[in-house]
Design a protein around this nucleic acid. Structure first.
Lengths: 155, 155
DNA sequence: TATTGTTATACTCTATAACTATA
DNA sequence: TATAGTTATAGAGTATAACAATA
């Protein structure tokens, strides 16, 4: 009989961790009647008032997909379109009060749930993990010309 | 002016890492004309020949969603339904040769791409990261009665 | 002419409810 | 009666192509 491994391969570990985190966000969003995409939309609007085109770039969506996404969020009263003051073709998307309240709730629960998972490590190990994860992300972002803290490509 | 942080918060780091890994899988699957769901279906069939009900449980889908998923994969010649030998209501789903070849290709590319990202760390740090990730996953799995190596709930 | 955004259309993914065949 | 699976239907999410308004 083959002994069970007591550790996953590095890639398998990252894959499973990624599904765990992604699944957590999906569950929390769904508890508030949202998909991950809707949650991400509200998330990027927390500190921006982008045009439709910029929303699409931030979320990696075609402009037609963005139209539908914002339509549905607007119908629920979570976001609003306002005409751009500088370009009469463009609109800016911003959170409503309801949208801001909802995204804060979901973000808070996400923070708490992931923290709970991390608390299974001793504080020292937690710091080490966090530092190594940051280092991987920083290196990868540098390789691909991405601003890690805004998510915006700075090519 | 606020100085830019040189490290993300632990939760932000995990979230971004998770999107990086998930996005990589999504891109690789899409390069082969598949969604993540299709890739996961082929993945779970690599070492199993489950019934439709079991496929749904493994992927977290309703039985009707499973029917459609398997329909589309079968239409592409990636999987096949075979009647169960013990229960005439049930069918077993298995990979075709084409399906096995496709999933091996995608899995190989995923392994290589994620390994490339990890190679930005020194071998020593890589081992540490991998060990800590495994430890988090093992603890979380134990908390939730999940067999980490099969993904199957053993409640 | 180029850009911003919407509309028309089509396909995947997902769920609920109703149904068929078998246990 | 209960279970395995499919079908009917509906909605979200995605893309491509064609279009209108504006730059």
């Amino acid at each position: 009989m083959i002994p069970a491994p007591d550790e996953l391969s590095p890639v398998d570990g990252l894959a499973q961790l990624s599904f765990l985190v992604h699944g957590t966000l999906e569950r929390l969003a769904s508890e508030h009647g949202m998909s991950i995409t809707q949650a991400r939309l509200l998330g990027v609007l927390r500190d921006r008032t982008p045009t439709m085109k910029e929303v699409g770039r931030l979320l990696g969506l075609d402009k037609s997909s963005t139209t539908g996404l914002v339509d549905r969020a607007e119908a629920r009263g979570l976001v609003a379109r306002v005409p751009s003051e500088t370009d009469r073709r463009a609109v800016r998307v911003h959170l409503t009060d309801d949208g801001r309240s909802l995204v804060s709730q979901v973000a808070g629960r996400f923070e708490r749930e992931i923290s709970t998972v991390l608390e299974r490590l001793r504080p020292r190990d937690r710091d080490t993990l966090s530092r190594l994860v940051s280092r991987v992300l920083v290196a990868h972002a540098a390789d691909h010309g991405i601003d890690l803290f805004s998510g915006i490509n700075v090519d």
